[in-house]
Every structure is written in C-alpha cells, then in structure tokens.
Design a protein around this nucleic acid. Sequence first.
DNA 1: CTGCATCCCTTTGGATACTG
DNA 2: CAGTATCCAAAGGGATGCAG
Lengths: 125, 125
Amino acid sequence: MALKIRKNKSPDPPAPCALTHCMSFISGAWAPNVIWNLREGPRRFSELKIDIPPISAKVLSTRLSELEKRGIIERNVLPTSPPSVEYKLTQIGTEIIPALDALVTVGHKLKTRGLNVDEAEVSRS
Amino acid sequence: MALKIRKNKSPDPPAPCALTHCMSFISGAWAPNVIWNLREGPRRFSELKIDIPPISAKVLSTRLSELEKRGIIERNVLPTSPPSVEYKLTQIGTEIIPALDALVTVGHKLKTRGLNVDEAEVSRS
DNA sequence: CTGCATCCCTTTGGATACTG
DNA sequence: CAGTATCCAAAGGGATGCAG
C-alpha cells in the first residue's frame, strides 16, 4: 500500500503554532540570562561565564552562536594578544529587554503573592 | 541497594539565577500557548486540545496542573451530565498576556527582518 | 581566552491505552 | 469528556578534554 505506516514516529511536522514559533528566539537554557546580562553593554565570553555560574562553556558557546544567528547579538573579536571576544545586543536585541522585564515582573509578583511557585523546597543549601 | 554510585552526577544545586527563576512560570512545552488561548475567556480541556493541535493530552493535562498550581489559571468543574471542565486565567494570569505579547512582537520583528531565525538552514543536504 | 568535540545522563514530551 | 498511567525515544545540557 502506498500509505505510510507511522508507528509512533513522525518527522515532527512543523507546529503550526505561531506563538510558540515567535517565542522560539529565547529558547535554550540560559538564553534569557545571556540576553539579560548583555543589557548594560558588551561583555566577554568569560565574563558571561562568570555572570551565569551554572552555565557550562559548551552551552554558553552554543547559546551565543544561536543568538548571533538569530540577529539578537553581535560578536566582535578583539585583536588583543590573548584573543578576547565581545558580545553585545543588536538594535533589535535590546528590544527584548523590556519584554523580558515584563515577564520577570509578573513572575516576581507570582512569587511574592505567597503562592507556591512549585518551589517551596528552595530551602536547599 | 541502598547506595547509589554517582560518577559525575551531582544533585544540581539550585541555580542562583533570579531571572531564570522568575521566568520559570512559563516553562514547559506549550505553556505560553495554553495561557495565550485562554486570553479571551474560559476554555474547556478539549477546546484547548483543539486550539493547540500538536499537544498531547498528557502534556496539556500536565501543563494545566502546573499553571493552576502556580496561580496562573483557575479550574472549574461544571456540573453537567458529561462532566466538563473550564479553565480560565486568574487576575494575575491575565497580566502575563501583555508580556507574552511584547515577546511575540519582538519575535515577529526578528522574523520579518529577513533574518534567518535558524530556519534558513532547511536546505540542508 | 575561546570554543569545539565527546560522552553520558536526565528530562520531558509524544503515543497509546485505560479509567471515572 | 477529562484525565491518568506506561512506555519510549529524542533532545538537550553538564563534565571533561583538547585545540586555535
């Protein structure tokens, strides 16, 4: 039969969800953090690494590449003896800041309202 | 066995990144979509299921529970013969809409600016 | 200093089937 | 209709080591 038998695997047809798609530019672990930490100006790789302690070099590198590809940040290699690289938000990249800020504001409200933001177990060392 | 040998696994200390933490309330696949689809009023389980075609019942159910626990949505069981359940945004839940909207706006700009939002590479050999 | 390659493990979302 | 339980597979991130 010409009909395709799909057991349970499909090539993942593009999700026709515009909203999901439009928000994909901040996808990936720490992506919002990276953007956030660039809000006050250029920052070097190692600085960002320090800004976001839990991030691994691999992930930071990956995120940086993605964000650059998406037109959110710019990469500048400084011709210093030990090569250093600066990353900065693009024009449009800076427009993300207020949006993130709005989201964080709501998130903060949610927390301070005595609600259980499913982390009542924060009493971790 | 009472002992577990951990080679390189650590309990992953809580990431001290406030921003990540403050945005975690929209974590999980389709979470933003669910919120978004409730923006115009109450919606039933099966309606949401239809609104967001790619979502599975399991995930929708999970997201709904999480969002309720986080105080973003409310669940109302309607005493109809076939039991139906309505979900609606809470007061604070509605505050997320503008934030999402801001994010989506930027995302849309990013796309329409002729940039490759990491999908220019579909022409992969 | 940057950043990639590898390996491995956890997470988590999808499919399916079943219950109230 | 609403939701849960299982199983499964893929994605993605962390650690480490190496390279430019």
